[in-house]
């Protein structure tokens, strides 16, 4: 019966969006931490294979938006559709299984696990996960350090590990929070190549990014957040025309 409802929804969506199916659709999302109301009606939609960014100053609600999608905040209202399934009422471990991979801002490498244990920790959430061999080819450092304690890795290696482990799970929607933060320029360049390769493979990617120069050439669309809302949307082709406005919002 579930499958029937799912395909029906896909059919109606295909009718309304002639171009591509929606991978993630967030509508009027409100989220709370205890008593404090952090998100005030966030709405955006990401189609399959798109890469978007959430930009904004610290405290604008970008990280909270990712956490609210994953069910890591307190109370949430509104609607979050992940691969056409409603996720607002689900427990966090069920949300992940809709096909989401999450790379947290603090990277979330476990210190009591070795590099390889960190890599193998996450359960499969989709069909087309990359094999460990493929990942070691993509990130050769991780193979060398596979027996090291997770937090003994360098910052760059930890970031690669945090990326690699979600690629293994078969997640097709990636939520990446500040992946370039605190990393050397050469590693940021490597990450840029990785992201480009993933986009070419058809991953849907939502990035929270402080480093606008890193994000600008990669993204299809930018959402600027302020005070827990989407304040502006900038399409890729509008970037040049709206640079002035973006600088104002981001306070660069």
């Amino acid at each position: 019966m579930n499958a029937g409802v799912g395909s029906q929804m896909n059919a109606t969506e295909a009718a309304t969006n002639s171009q591509a199916a929606s991978a993630l659709q967030v509508s009027d999302l409100h989220a709370f931490y205890g008593e404090s109301h952090i998100l005030h009606g966030v709405s955006f939609e990401v189609k399959r294979g798109e890469l978007i960014t959430l930009l904004g100053r610290n405290g604008a609600g970008r990280t909270t938006t990712l956490k609210a999608i994953l069910g890591l905040t307190g109370k949430r209202t509104g609607s979050i559709k992940i691969n056409s399934a409603e996720a607002i009422g689900l427990a966090p471990h069920k949300i992940a299984r809709l096909g989401i991979g999450y790379c947290p801002e603090e990277r979330g490498i476990f210190s009591s696990l070795s590099c390889e244990e960190n890599l193998l920790l996450l359960p499969m959430v989709g069909k087309n996960g990359m094999s460990v061999d493929e990942l070691y080819t993509m990130f050769p450092n991780l193979k060398e350090r596979r027996l090291s304690q997770g937090t003994r890795l360098s910052g760059g290696e930890q970031q690669m590990l945090a990326m690699a482990r979600i690629l293994r799970t078969g997640a097709d929607i990636l939520l990446l929070d500040e992946i370039t933060e605190g990393l050397a320029p050469v590693i940021v360049q490597t990450l840029g190549r990785v992201i480009r390769a993933l986009k070419a493979k058809g991953f849907t990617i939502i990035m929270v990014e402080q480093n606008f120069r890193f994000a600008a050439p990669l993204a299809d669309r930018h959402y600027v957040m302020e005070h827990g809302k989407i304040a502006a949307v900038v399409e890729r082709h509008e970037l040049a025309a709206k640079t002035e406005m973006l600088h104002e919002f981001l306070g660069v």
Binding site: P92, H93, A96, L113
Partner: peptide, 25 residues
């Protein structure tokens, strides 16, 4: 063991482990 790695990770950061799809409760 693998099972133990869930326990160790869950001890460190249960919320994140659950966000990865493991039934922490």
């Amino acid at each position: 063991t693998r099972l133990g790695s869930y326990l160790r990770a869950g001890t460190e950061n249960p919320k994140l482990v659950q966000a990865f799809g493991i039934n922490v409760p």
